[in-house]
Simulated assay, not measured.
Amino acid sequence: MPSRQAPSSAEASDTQHLQSERLESLANGLALLRVFAEGTPSLTVQEAAQRLGMTRAAARRLLITLQLEGYLRCEGNLYYVTPRVMDLGFAYYASMSLPQLAHATLQSLGDQVSEACSLGVWDSGHVVIVARHEPARVLRVNVDIGRRLPAFAHSMGRVLLANQPVAAQRAHLKAWPPEAFTKETVTAKEKLLQIFQQVGQQGWCILAGELAEGFCGISVPIQGSTGKVLAALSITMVQGRRTVQDLEADYLPKLQAAAQQLEALVHGRERFHGFNF
């Protein structure tokens, strides 16, 4: 095993310079919050002093400071962490875009179902893939990030259309007249409006063989904290012998659970400022 290289003299000098700028009180405050994060439910002044290797007086000032800032509460001689510490974690998510937030969710979902998973958003009458995870396999669903797909003929597009007013749905079908991609593609406008209504009522969409023969997909919406639909989450696969009933029974619960996880992250992101892609 190769030995680890020693830091260069320049790196050592930079580290020493940074150490001279270190704010000890802030470092101690973060260390104390990490103690709670490791599973410690409460601390006394003496316990905090012992865990951090400082005097009781210094530990007491630290605990009182965090109490005054709202991160701790005191009951008798015990200090407990408050829900406000979650702001520190959510601040991390506040700097992330929707595709970044979705990365881990897509990967986890893909590992569960062993199928391609995508996140799509509405853009000028199309559904655009903004994040995707696809397991390694010989036969792949060739859809890249940034791909624009006809909304009326894709399960994510129908989910996004279903959450628009009927007038907007009609306007969409007028601006982008449906065309047949396969013999299964629904192109009748009134029939499509009925499908959009059904998708909106049930909260999910299954589409088989309408955009490409032999492929099917199932999608659910991703909602913001106000209920506005921000995106759609989907699983896409080779249809094989799967029926619509198989997709609903086998994939829908996992897809809905993944959507709830992503929505929890989105809602945390929205607590800080409006969501931006």
Results as ranks from 00 to 15, higher is better:
Val266Asp: 11
Leu119Glu: 01
Gln164Met: 15
Leu207Tyr: 01
Val81Gln: 07
Val113Asn: 01
Ala180Ser: 15
Leu161Met: 13
Thr182Asn: 03
Gln256Ala: 14
Asn77Cys: 01
Leu230Cys: 03
Glu184Tyr: 13
Leu160Trp: 03
Val186Cys: 09
Gly110Met: 03
Pro135Asp: 04
Asn276Phe: 07
Gln260Glu: 14
Ala94Ile: 00
Leu233Ser: 08
Ala48Lys: 01
Ala171Cys: 06
Gly29Met: 15
Ala188Phe: 06
Arg170Met: 12
Ser9His: 11
Ile235Gln: 01
Val35Ser: 04
Ala116Lys: 05
Gly240Pro: 06
Cys205Val: 08
Ser25Ile: 09
Val166Ile: 15
Ala10Lys: 12
Gln245Cys: 04
Leu33Asn: 05
His17Thr: 12
Ser95Arg: 13
Leu88Tyr: 12
Leu18Asp: 09
Arg241Asp: 14
Ala180Val: 09
Val238Asp: 09
Ser9Gln: 15
Phe36His: 02
Ser3Ile: 06
Ser118Pro: 00
Arg170Ser: 02
Ser97His: 06
Gln16Leu: 15
Val229Cys: 09
Ile64Cys: 03
Leu101Phe: 04
Ala175Asp: 14
Arg269Gly: 05
Ser124Gln: 13
Gln5Ala: 11
Glu190Val: 03
Ala171Glu: 15
Pro7Met: 11
Leu88Ile: 10
Ala48Leu: 06
Leu32Pro: 04
Tyr92Pro: 00
Pro165Thr: 06
Phe152Leu: 04
Ser3Phe: 11
